[in-house]
Design a protein around this nucleic acid. Structure first.
Lengths: 233, 233
DNA sequence: AAGAATCGAGAGCGGTGCTCTTGCCTTTGG
DNA sequence: CCAAAGGCAAGAGCACCGCTCTCGATTCTT
């Protein structure tokens, strides 16, 4: 009847898997990735630690599942911001996406640190994570492509793109089917890096005792960056 | 006789403290911060774990000492690059500092992640770390001040600085005794965030399978950023 | 030289990830 | 419809972790 019309056993398995992930997400939000303990999650789930291994082969697998969910969550935020600002200028859309991105990062600090901070040592991102990880960059690329098509983004540039980098940029164009010139891609990656850098600076406390009005500062920097993004060079 | 002319006991203590730190630094470089184990360090140092606690009250205290050293090391790199490029243009000095910064980050990935990636959960940076942590930003500020004084950095800007941010920028000016206008400080923080963001993107693997010639890409982005930094808006 | 402070070693506590075995119970196949 | 097969929770156990405490031995101080 339901889409996943399996036996009662399979349904219970799905439910318990969801429960474990939910508790894990809570622990992640509360204590951070390094403190994510399978035993503690098991205790909160009311089962013994070895039972959890029936659902997640290792602690890292649970962590991976949470990472995938987090990438999807922040990706949805970016896509939603992109959609909701269809009729606005490219630069103001960039500011909107950046603002929502920061808001998500603030509300989910440990998740943000897990996605964009230093990777957990000894932990190699499995291939399951790469697809959801591209959602935010993909939304930004879509914004750039749209801005170019609308003629809102200056495409001329005086700074030449090295041959090897041009090849990589060309690969991005063909992989995404978006016609974004080298210079715009370069500026877009600058703006993306600046966004990650600024969010990191604030979240990780490097602006403590330096910047006090975080919101005003972030808006200023975002506005500046969006101007650079569309006006170029 | 020597500057630290203490008893044999104190000398031995200093030596052992240095040994522990050296082994800890090696473990940090090899396995990362999360895997830094006092017991493993003790084994490598040829003593029992409890003995290490005579020198470092906790694992986090050892980590803090390593963090301070790392901040000093990368700070020295930035200052050295600043010194060595005295006669070059401001924009090319920025590129030089950024290049050396990346080189240090590549050669000391785990240390870099510790300093500029996500902070270790449950670990609050003690006040000992804030002074060495400012060496790199301070070097960048010195570059900006020098560039302004030389007239190489455009100081005009069309983007207004919010009142609260202006106050913070004024505090930076008085604290550093450097006369850097709001617009230049704002652009400088953009460039600093962009640098951290780009280094993070490369080091943490987010450009994997996207950018293949990391060096060319980084140079391109640095050059672009330095142009923006001096030319403004 | 006597007392005080420091040190290395060892045992021990509670925590971690993970494995293996043991029964129970659901699901499946004849 | 009943028996074999497989998934399941539980418990014990291993090796590791941070950290504490005690106990002698050594060194420094007075």
């Amino acid at each position: 009847m339901a889409s996943t019309a399996q036996g009662a056993r399979a349904l219970a398995r799905d439910q318990i898997t969801r429960d474990i992930k939910a508790i894990g997400r809570q622990h992640l939000a509360d204590y951070g990735a390094a403190a994510l303990s399978l035993r503690a999650v098991a205790r909160d789930a009311g089962m013994v630690s070895s039972a959890v291994y029936r659902y997640f082969p290792s602690r890292d697998d649970l962590l991976t599942a949470l990472i995938v969910d987090a990438y999807d969550a922040v990706g949805a935020v970016a896509e939603q911001a992109l959609d909701a600002t269809r009729r606005r200028s490219t630069s103001s859309r960039w500011v909107a996406i950046g603002t929502d991105f920061l808001a998500w990062a603030r509300a989910n600090q440990h998740e943000y640190a897990l996605l964009y901070g230093s990777p957990v040592p000894g932990y190699a991102a499995p291939s399951d994570t790469i697809s959801p990880a591209t959602r935010v960059p993909f939304a930004l690329l879509a914004l750039l492509a749209d801005g170019v098509e609308r003629g809102e983004i200056h495409t001329a540039t005086e700074i030449p793109t090295p041959r090897t980098v041009h090849a990589d940029f060309a690969a991005v164009r063909s992989a995404t089917a978006m016609d974004i010139p080298d210079g715009v891609l370069s500026r877009g990656l600058i703006a993306w890096a600046q966004l990650l850098g600024t969010v990191g600076l604030e979240l990780f406390g490097h602006l403590h005792n330096v910047i006090h009005d975080d919101d005003a500062f972030f808006q200023l920097q975002l506005q500046r960056m969006s101007t650079y993004l569309v006006a170029g060079d």
